[in-house]
């Protein structure tokens, strides 16, 4: 059964339409990549799927259920997680506090949450070393790990990542890549990137955004 499906989805800001008629199907436990230049509408699409922006028309279904009426925090509770562009970690909260924010919204039970919390620190050992530090004091790569780790604690059905390699040193890019590869098959991912090699390594299927329309590519 299809996990996430959009039909004729259009979105943008107020009167301005950024993308239109997007028909996207994401199967369980797959990785989908979306390429496209700056301003093509990739970020707008992810924000619309996550519920931060209201869709202008069309439908979004998760496990066959309409999620359009749900607010962003409710979609997060139902398993749609977004690691936003620029990481958006809470700079004034410690690493541990950042990771604790999704606790009550998580689909994990309390016991399971604590177990997964440990697992995140195993996947990203750098975070364990920095647990007591403020988020604002982390390097770009560490912030990306924290942002991904935080979203994983929601127990997502689909994890959306907006430009996860942006601004990272090559060594950090490969670290992020290997950790995402390690997570392959546990849930679906939808990754928006300008780095084609990164997507080639990860994705089962790829799309490209051209003029506000989504096209399948190889």
């Amino acid at each position: 059964m299809t996990l996430l499906e959009t039909r004729n989805l259009s979105g943008g800001y107020r009167a301005l339409t950024i993308f239109s008629d997007v028909n996207l199907t994401i199967e369980p436990n797959t990785i989908t990549g979306i390429l496209g230049p700056n301003g093509a509408g990739k970020t707008t699409l992810l924000k619309t799927l996550a519920g931060l922006l209201k869709a202008q028309s069309g439908t979004i279904r998760l496990d066959g259920n309409d999620v359009m009426p749900l607010s962003a925090h409710d979609r997060a509770r139902h398993g749609i997680a977004l690691v936003p562009e620029g990481r958006q970690i809470f700079q004034g909260l410690t690493v541990k506090e950042n990771l604790g924010i999704p606790r009550s919204a998580s689909r994990f039970s309390a016991v399971e949450f604590d177990r997964r919390f440990e697992e995140i620190l195993t996947i990203f050992p750098r975070l364990r070393e920095r647990l007591g530090q403020l988020g604002g004091g982390l390097s770009g790569g560490e912030q990306q790990m924290l942002a991904i780790g935080r979203a994983l604690l929601l127990d997502p059905k689909v994890l959306m990542l907006d430009e996860p390699t942006q601004g990272l040193a090559p060594i950090m890019v490969s670290q992020v890549l290997s950790s995402l590869e390690a997570l392959r098959g546990r849930f679906s991912m939808l990754i928006v990137e300008q780095n084609r090699d990164f997507l080639d390594r990860l994705s089962n299927s790829k799309f490209v955004f051209r003029g506000g329309k989504l096209e399948q590519t190889t």
């Binding site: 996550a50 519920g51 931060l52 607010s71 962003a72 925090h73 997060a76 509770r77 997680a81 977004l82 936003p84 958006q88 970690i89 809470f90 700079q91 004034g92 909260l93 924010i101 999704p102 009550s104 919204a105 998580s106 935080r150 979203a151 929601l154």
Partner: peptide, 13 residues
């Protein structure tokens, strides 16, 4: 600090 990021983590802002 960041209402959108909190919302994405399931917090009802």
């Amino acid at each position: 600090e960041n209402p959108d990021a909190a919302e994405l983590l399931g917090v009802n802002v």
